[in-house]
Structures are given as C-alpha cells and as structure tokens.
Design a protein around this nucleic acid. Structure first.
Lengths: 213, 213
DNA sequence: CGCCGCTCGGTTGCATGCAATCCTTGCCAT
DNA sequence: ATGGCAAGGATTGCATGCAACCGAGCGGCG
C-alpha cells in the first residue's frame, strides 16, 4: 500500500479541483481524519503539501480552508502565466516524443468532443482534461523550477471553475487552440506553439476577468 | 512563545542560507530533534515547509537533504528570475513608501561597505543583506502569487554561495546595481528599475554559469 | 443599555510509542 | 573473488494522548 499521506493529498486534490469541496470551505483535521479513515498526522502532512501547491490556505491555530482567489489575484496569476507558460511550451516542444504527442492529440480531441455544443457537453470533464493537457507541456519542459513555479498557479483557474463562464465562441476558440498547439508541437515549431499558448491565455483571461490589461 | 515549528523552520533556514549546513547534507529527524530540543513532529512540519520553499528535498522513506542545484538547474532558475523579477520590481516601485525606500538605501549602502574591497570585506554578510534587498522588492510588488513563484527560486543563488565566485569587477557592478535600483525607485521610475534589475540578473548569471544564453 | 472580561467547548499543535520501510553488512553459493 | 541474499540496525511514517490556543456565549460592571 502506498503512503497514506500521499493518498490523502491526492483525494483532497481531486475533490477540490472537481469542486466537490467548495472554495473557501473549512477543512477540519478531525473531520477529514474520520472521513478518510486515517489519523490526523497524515492529514496534516497532506494539508501542508496542498498549501505549498496553493490549493489550500493554512492560518496558524485556525485551521485550513480551501483557497479562494479574488479578481485581483486572478489578474496577477494570469500575468504570471503569460510570462511563464508560453516559454514553457516552447521549451517543451523539442522534448516531446511520439507517445506524448499522441496523448496530446487524444486530450485535445476529447476536449473538442466533450466541450463542443450539444447534449453531451460535459464542462466538468473539461477541467481534468485541460489540467492534464497543460501539465503535460509543463512537465515536458524539463525544468523542475519552472514546473514548481507554475504548479501553484495553474490550479487557480481550475478551482474557479472557469469553463462555466466561457461564451460559446470563446470556448470554441480555446478548444481549437489546443488542437493547433499540438499541430505546432508535431511540426517541431516551438515558437508557433508559444504564440498559440499566449493567445490561449489572453483568450482565457478575457473571459475570466474582462479583457484589458 | 512562538509556534515551535516556525522556530525550527527559521533556524534551519538561517543555517542553510548561511552555509552552516552544507549543501546536500543529510537532515535526520532525530538529529535535529535532539539538537533543537523539540520533538520530531514540528521537525517534520518545518522540513515540509522548507521543501515547499525549495530549500530542502525530501525523498519518501529516505529522509531530507539540503537541496543542491546542478548547473542546468541554475540556468533554468535564472531564466525564471529574468522573466519574473524585473517585472516584480516594476510593480513594486509605485508601492514603495518612504520608510521602505530608506531601508533599501540602508541595505544598498551596507552592501557597498561590507562588499567593497579591503580587509573588512565580509562576503557572508552580503548573503543576508542581498536576500532582504531582493525580498523587499518582491514583497512590495503586492502579488502573493508572484511572491510564491519567486520565493523558491531566489534561494538557490544564495545557497550556492555565489558571492565567492564574483570577480571584483562583477561584484562591484552588482553592488552599484543595487544603489541605482534604489535611485530609480525613489524617482518613481519603474521601467528604469526594471531595466537595472534585468542587467543585475544578467551580470549574476554570467558569473555563475558563464555568460551566454 | 452597551461594553468588557471570563469561562467553556472545540480545534490545532506537540510529544511519544509503535509499525513499516530502507540501507548496510556479513554470509553463502557460484 | 564476486554476485546475490538475508538478517540487523537505523530511520521514516503513522497513531494516539495531552497541552495550548482560539472563538463563542454568558454574566458582571460601568
């Protein structure tokens, strides 16, 4: 069996990212310990890690809450992503092997399917697919410091459950950005992929906080 | 009395940054618990936090070691800093009050004194002063996400005990960069400060990993 | 009637004991 | 002699119990 703290962290991560635990909700150690059938020690360990990832906020002697972001924070986060993530994509392109390109293809295609208009549209599924898509590029960049700097920051857009707010047009653009990004990666054109990522982020920022710088 | 875990984290931080604990050294929980007269629990807590800051690396079931960086990592870290820290400085300049400007002046002046050539040159003192100088700008930028992304990354250059490697010329440039940065900040010229910070980082990178991109 | 202080319930923080895992060293077989 | 392996020691990971701290609600005082 795997380390318990890791299990707990993974469970909480999924529950937070999927929205099963509301943003700002209180995370009592005793509660979680009972719910997940472990002692409070690995709970504390897990909360500590999640705090490092920026998913929860810990106030001394006052427990942990699911992190919540203000509009101002979101603006700052996009400013960061715009400075780092296009660069990460450019670095990642030469490192992508065939199997990773296939996986990116798969992810982009599935996002097109579940995100496209129609009755089988499933915006909540998009969250996880999108996370894996961006995460794959970030990991492929092969820079632990870069990955560390970005990891805490990509979660924010997820927790705020962004896809609900996209206009149909903006959502369509976003999904096709993914496809184009994979095409650029397959062509080995790092700068092309970088440019698309930049557009992708501007598009996202515009829908989440309203356009202008 | 303050929370014990925080005390432990602070102690270890200072010992690591000052070089009292060598880079790559093993950090046994029982050892530290005995040395700092607390139980292993706050030790684990502190190590976890320091790992989040990037100062130590924890391998499951194999304990914690002081982080060490390869030349490749250093290159990546400077790539990150070049993308974030000049921006942070520009954002910080409008937020700097008189007392903070005075503190920056003080720090820059003291660095000139202890870093200047002569028998009272004290390179190890530079480490802490430099850390506070850069940290003050980062905090003043007023963006928690930005601060979080940078915090793990500014430590690296410190732990590698960089000032030893500076040529006298490069060190002199670096110290005067600080002074000029404060002058720019006092003039309210964010873009000037940003430009100097960029030069400052290029200068540092050149001495640490040898120039070219 | 309003404000301050106090007690009390609940939660976090810390210490300690035990179980699981890993590294080492010595032995045996090839 | 060398490679594999197993037992021992040491260290990390987890559970549990106790102490310190925080917040809420009530009573007393101005």
């Amino acid at each position: 069996m795997r380390p318990a703290a890791e299990q707990v962290a993974q469970s909480l991560r999924e529950e937070i990212l999927s929205g099963a635990i509301a943003s700002g909700a209180r995370l009592g150690e005793a509660d979680l310990a009972g719910r997940l059938s472990v002692s409070r020690t690995p709970i504390r360990e897990a909360l500590s890690r999640l705090a490092a990832e920026g998913l929860v906020e810990i106030q001394p002697n006052r427990g942990a809450r699911v992190a919540s972001w203000s509009a101002e924070h979101l603006r700052e986060i996009f400013e960061l992503r715009l400075r780092l993530e296009p660069y990460a994509v450019r670095q990642a392109v030469p490192n992508l092997g065939p199997e990773q390109l296939d996986e990116l293809d798969e992810l982009a295609a599935r996002m097109l399917r579940v995100g496209g208009p129609g009755r089988n549209q499933d915006l909540s599924a998009l969250v996880e697919l999108n996370r894996r898509f961006h995460g794959l590029f970030i990991d492929a960049a092969g820079s632990p410091p870069l990955a560390g700097a970005l990891r805490g920051v990509t979660h924010a857009a997820v927790v705020t459950r962004n896809f609900q707010d996209y206009t149909p047009d903006a959502l369509s653009r976003s999904l096709h950005h993914h496809v184009e990004m994979v095409a650029a990666a397959r062509a080995g054109a790092g700068e092309w992929a970088e440019a698309i990522m930049r557009a992708h982020l501007y598009n996202a920022r515009a829908t989440m906080i309203g356009g202008h710088s």
